[in-house]
Deep mutational scan, measured.
Amino acid sequence: DIIVVALYDYEAIHHEDLSFQKGDQMVVLEESGEWWKARSLATRKEGYIPSNYVARVDS
């Protein structure tokens, strides 16, 4: 799995977006363009995230 960590807070604009806080970790489910589908490890919610707001966690 690709794990990313939030670099900034993000408040969902559309209902399919995923809100998150700086430091939150998410599993990337699908990478396509600038918006990635991800699942929050904390809340288990899924939605689209702006890929420029996150960084990959080296395992």
Rank of each mutant, 00 (worst) to 15 (best):
I2C: 12
H15K: 13
I13S: 10
F20R: 00
D9A: 08
E46G: 03
I3C: 08
Q25N: 08
D17L: 09
G47D: 00
A55W: 08
I13P: 07
I13N: 09
S19K: 04
V54S: 00
T43M: 03
V57P: 07
G23N: 05
E34S: 12
G23W: 05
L7S: 02
V28M: 04
V4I: 09
H14G: 14
E31P: 09
V4R: 02
R44M: 15
S19T: 08
A55M: 14
E16W: 15
Q25W: 15
S51F: 09
R44P: 05
A42H: 10
T43C: 05
E31Q: 15
V57W: 09
R39W: 08
E34I: 12
H14R: 13
F20I: 03
G23T: 02
N52M: 10
K37S: 04
E30V: 10
I13T: 11
D17P: 02
G33D: 06
Y53A: 11
I3W: 08
M26E: 00
M26T: 00
E46S: 09
D1K: 11
I2K: 12
G33W: 04
R39E: 04
S32D: 12
A55F: 08
A42V: 14
H15F: 12
D17S: 09
D9T: 09
K37I: 10
D1A: 13
S51V: 08
W36P: 04
Q25Y: 15
I3T: 06
Y10P: 00
V5C: 08
I13A: 10
Y10L: 04
L41K: 06
V5P: 00
K22G: 04
K45N: 09
V54K: 01
W35A: 04
N52H: 13
G23I: 00
G23C: 08
D9E: 05
A6Q: 00
V28E: 00
Y8K: 10
V57F: 10
G23L: 03
S59M: 13
R39C: 09
Y48P: 00
D9S: 10
Q21T: 11
V54C: 06
K37H: 09
V4Y: 11
E11K: 12
A38W: 02
Y53G: 06
E31A: 15
K22M: 08
E11Q: 12
V28Y: 02
D1I: 14
V27S: 06
D24N: 04
K22R: 10
S19V: 03
D58R: 10
L29E: 04
Y48V: 06
K37E: 03
